[in-house]
Design a protein around this nucleic acid. Structure first.
Length: 240
DNA sequence: AATCGTACCAACCGCTATGTC
DNA sequence: GGACATAGCGGTTGGTACGAT
């Protein structure tokens, strides 16, 4: 019998000094949480303890619901197609797991994060070429963020003007699709499939219509992080 | 059969963003 | 506008299962 099962059977669980339970969830706790969400919806997680009779903090309840109890979750192994989507979106967005998860209905950010770490982190580490690219991208991000900060301060935190957005959009159009490096990455990672058509690929990069849309501006910033060095220099040197 | 290494995954932690008063 | 509460995110940890030796 595992500790978790024993804990469930005997009602064990770590009680913190604040009075919150920690550790694995019991079936009874799950039942209470499901019932609570059914009645009240996914809101005010901190009141769950009081209203549902759970000795869990709101954070823990939310996490349990989002990662495990939600009815729309897809259980089971990540399919080759899902894997290829993860690879492509990670190449584009980096460790933005929640963003990636939005393109994979039924999968959670935690699940994708775990999958990535298990299957690809090592491979990525072993490839010096990839790590160099990652370092370069990180530097680019830092450089850009610094510039942005200065720019923001100068503009007293005003939003980017229209011409800036147009410049970035046109630059991004020159960059897309990311086909230059994706086939190599797919090969290295052993991904089995790719998107059957451009429309689907587009929908992966620009997920819309699920109530959690990525804004145009987000897409613009995300695209900028992945610009090639040449395009990056071009962007930095362009007069505004 | 025992031990070890590794893959997998649930859960926690710390931080940031956003909302509310 | 500031303080506080809440939600969300990404990184990390710890436990379990399982195969290799």
């Amino acid at each position: 019998m595992s500790w978790a099962m024993m804990g469930e059977q005997f009602g064990w669980g770590v009680i913190k000094e604040e009075g919150w339970r920690k550790g694995p969830w019991t079936a009874e706790e799950d039942r209470l949480l499901i019932e609570y969400v059914r009645l009240h919806g996914e809101v005010r997680w901190n009141s769950v303890a009081r209203l549902a009779g759970l000795k869990r903090n709101g954070k823990s309840c939310r996490l349990r619901w989002v990662n495990y109890l939600r009815p729309d979750l897809k259980r089971g192994q990540i399919t080759p197609h899902e894997e290829s989507i993860i690879l492509e979106l990670h190449a584009r967005w980096g460790n933005r797991w929640s963003t990636i998860a939005r393109s994979l209905p039924g999968r959670t950010d935690n699940e994708i994060k775990n999958y990535w770490r298990t299957h690809f982190k090592k491979k990525a580490k072993l490839s010096p070429e990839n790590s160099d690219q990652a370092k370069a991208r990180t530097l680019k991000r830092q450089h850009f963020q610094q510039q942005l900060l200065q720019q923001k301060q100068q503009q007293q935190y005003l939003q980017l003007n229209e011409s800036d957005m147009k410049r970035m959009m046109s630059l991004l159009e020159e960059t897309e699709p990311k086909a230059q490096y994706m086939p190599q990455l797919r090969q290295e990672m052993g991904a089995a499939t790719s998107c059957p058509n451009m429309a689907e690929e587009q929908s992966l990069f620009y997920p819309m219509g699920n109530g959690n849309e990525t804004s145009n501006e987000d897409v613009v910033w995300d695209g900028l992080w992945n610009l090639d060095d040449y395009q990056w220099k071009l962007w930095c040197s362009k007069p505004s």
